[in-house]
């Protein structure tokens, strides 16, 4: 039973489509091969994990580098909207409930919901409208403020032009669950956006093994945050932004390198 659990866990490395078609027979072979010894089971499980990562990497590479960059921009929009929503919740917790903030939260939550389910064009247009209504694009327009949100604007335009190609799925709304939990738990405490983004970036770094998209998205969001807070904000602890800058640069470099390799090998 434990062997089967180990095998099933190793199989999770494969994309769902492969798991569905070949998963049971792969598991059967792993259990056959793993009967010889514990070491054989470990070796075979490791081989499955590596095979799964290779498969996922191939899947990402087949999408093409343009698609990968577009997907990364869309993911960056999702992260930015999430952080913006958390920031609005934060603001309300600190400043107290206000009708305007509540409306902003509802609008942002609605846009994020649309984007998560799969209506990304509508969400992107909503995001641009929200930037005008609540963000630095609102009147009076300041060039410096505009420059600071150039990346989000660019990402929103990419989302309008090339939204992620994935079936509509209500299960993605689970992404909102941590936001709701944080809002409930930290009702009167401050949530640090860089720390939140750092947690997401760890996921991006782990995924760099087979897919550069989340890493690029996190890097774009880091750059946006750094541009938004050019000084030493109270939001971040001492040295945290320096670390963030290095991490963002490193992640972007690795992801760009990976994209280049994918493109180079594909031509």
């Amino acid at each position: 039973m434990i062997r089967e659990r180990i095998g099933r866990a190793a199989l999770r490395a494969y994309p769902p489509a492969v798991r569905q078609t070949r998963g049971p027979e792969m598991l059967g072979m792993l259990l056959d091969a793993g009967e010889q010894s514990h070491w054989a089971l470990v070796r075979e499980s490791g081989s499955l994990v590596l095979g799964g990562l290779r498969e996922r990497r191939a899947l990402a590479a087949r999408a093409g580098s343009r698609r990968l960059v577009a997907d990364a921009c869309c993911q960056a929009v999702l992260i930015l909207l999430t952080l913006w929503l958390i920031s609005a919740v934060n603001k309300q917790a600190i400043a107290g409930a206000s009708r305007q903030l509540l409306l902003q939260e509802v609008v942002l939550a609605a846009i994020l919901t649309c984007a998560l389910i799969g209506y990304q064009r509508i969400a992107a247009l909503g995001g641009l409208a929200a930037l005008i209504a609540y963000g630095p694009l609102g009147p009076p327009i300041q060039l410096v403020a505009l420059a600071r949100v150039l990346i989000p604007i660019a990402c929103l335009f990419v989302m309008v032009r090339a939204p992620q190609r994935r079936p509509r799925d209500l299960r993605r709304l689970l992404w909102l669950l941590p936001v709701a939990v944080l809002a409930a738990v930290h009702a009167h405490a401050h949530i640090s956006l860089p720390e939140m983004l750092a947690v997401m970036s760890i996921g991006g770094l782990l995924r760099l093994l087979h897919d550069p998209r989340l890493a690029i998205a996190c890097s774009l969001v880091w750059i946006t945050l750094l541009a938004a807070y050019p000084g030493r904000p109270a939001l971040a602890g001492p040295g945290l932004l320096d670390l963030a800058a290095v991490a963002a640069g490193l992640m972007l470099t690795i992801a760009a390198g990976q994209l280049w390799i994918m493109r180079h090998r594909a031509t």
Binding site: A33, R43, E44, L48, R54
Partner: peptide, 11 residues
């Protein structure tokens, strides 16, 4: 041939 390798080449 390990499981991961075999199924990659079979695919």
């Amino acid at each position: 041939i390990s499981t991961g390798t075999l199924y990659a080449l079979l695919e």
